[in-house]
Structure formats: structure tokens, C-alpha cells
């Protein structure tokens, strides 16, 4: 039943890239995304005695999705606070110099999507999970997932078109 260090490391190597890409389209900051990813794997490591290797990937995704949700909600909750200049600059898409123009347009478009649609779209694009597994992760029916995905794609396409120079 217990998870070995090797199994955890193998899971990290397997999931690092898809999870990083998923998190990056939420927070647009590589260091923060890695920090969240490490948070998730540290939690799994602490619970390794109770985790079965076969359920590790699903559990890792659940942890990452929840951490991203919490972090996103916390950011929205504290948005009214006067932040230090460095943080404000990082939060403002127009000042994020490390992003190219496509990333900036995508970021502005994704920020206008409802969080639930954004979640569906990003998981579909980056997780590599089966549709049924994504639906299970999000606790919704497959039909709901399909309709949210359809709406998200239509909306993102129209937002990207609107922002074309």
C-alpha cells in the first residue's frame, strides 16, 4: 500500500510538465507554479504510507487542482489590498515583460473566463487525462464537462479574435 520514494519521483517526472503547464495558465509565474507543484508532492510524500501507487496520478491531479483553486480564490479575495509595486507589476498582464504578445492576449482572455470553464479547458489541453477522469476529478458529469468545454472554447476564440491587432 505504501508509496516508495522511487514511485513518487517517477510520478513527479511524469507529471511535472503537464502540471506545470496547467498551473502556468493560472498564475503566469514559473516560480509560483513550481512552488505549488512542490506543495502538492510534499503533501503526497507525507501521506505516502496511505497511498497506493495505482491511484497516485489521480491523487496528484486532485491536489494540484485544489491548490490552484485555493490560490486563485485567495488572490481574488486579497485583490483590494495595496500590494507592493513588484507584486502589482507581476499581476498586471501589460507589464509582464517575460510574456510574449500571444501569452499576454491569452492571459487576458483566460482571465475573463469563469474559473470552472477555465479549469475544464486547461485540463483538457494539458493534463492528458481521459475525459471521464477529468469529469471525476472535477466532480461533474461527462455531459456537463462537454458543454463547459464547448462554451469555453467558443468564448476563448471570440476573446482572442477581439484582441487581434
Amino acid at each position: 500500500m505504501a508509496l516508495s520514494d522511487d514511485e513518487l519521483e517517477a510520478a513527479y517526472r511524469r507529471l511535472e510538465r503537464p502540471m506545470f503547464n496547467y498551473l502556468y495558465r493560472w498564475f503566469w509565474d514559473a516560480a509560483q507554479c513550481e512552488d505549488l507543484l512542490h506543495d502538492a508532492f510534499e503533501r503526497l510524500w507525507k501521506l505516502r504510507r496511505r497511498i497506493d501507487a495505482s491511484s497516485l496520478d489521480a491523487l496528484a491531479w486532485t491536489t494540484v487542482i485544489n491548490l490552484a483553486r485555493n490560490q486563485h480564490a485567495a488572490r481574488k479575495r486579497w485583490r483590494w489590498l495595496p500590494l507592493p509595486e513588484a507584486l502589482v507589476a507581476r499581476d498586471d498582464p501589460s507589464q509582464a515583460l517575460e510574456l510574449d504578445w500571444r501569452d499576454q492576449r491569452l492571459r487576458q482572455a483566460l482571465d475573463q473566463l469563469p474559473a470552472r470553464s477555465r479549469e475544464v479547458l486547461l485540463l483538457e489541453l494539458f493534463s492528458g487525462l481521459e475525459r471521464a477522469e477529468i469529469a471525476r476529478q472535477l466532480g461533474i458529469a461527462e455531459g456537463t464537462l462537454a458543454s463547459r468545454k464547448h462554451q469555453a472554447i467558443a468564448r476563448i476564440q471570440s476573446l482572442l479574435k477581439e484582441s487581434e491587432p
Binding site: Y12, E16, A31, E34, L37, F41, R102, I153, I156, L160
Partner: peptide
């Protein structure tokens, strides 16, 4: 409607920062 209908330029797969596993181990 599929995700392929969005230009892949927007959702290109990025490489995570190098040395992530070593930092996690530490």
C-alpha cells in the same frame, strides 16, 4: 467543438524550470 480549433501557438507546451526534482528532494 474541439481544443484543436484554438491556435496551438497560444497553448504551446512550456518546459518547467530545470532542476525541479532536485529542489523537491531538498
Amino acid at each position: 467543438m474541439s481544443t484543436h480549433e484554438i491556435s496551438p501557438d497560444y497553448f504551446r507546451v512550456l518546459e518547467p524550470p530545470a532542476g525541479g526534482l532536485e529542489r523537491l528532494r531538498r
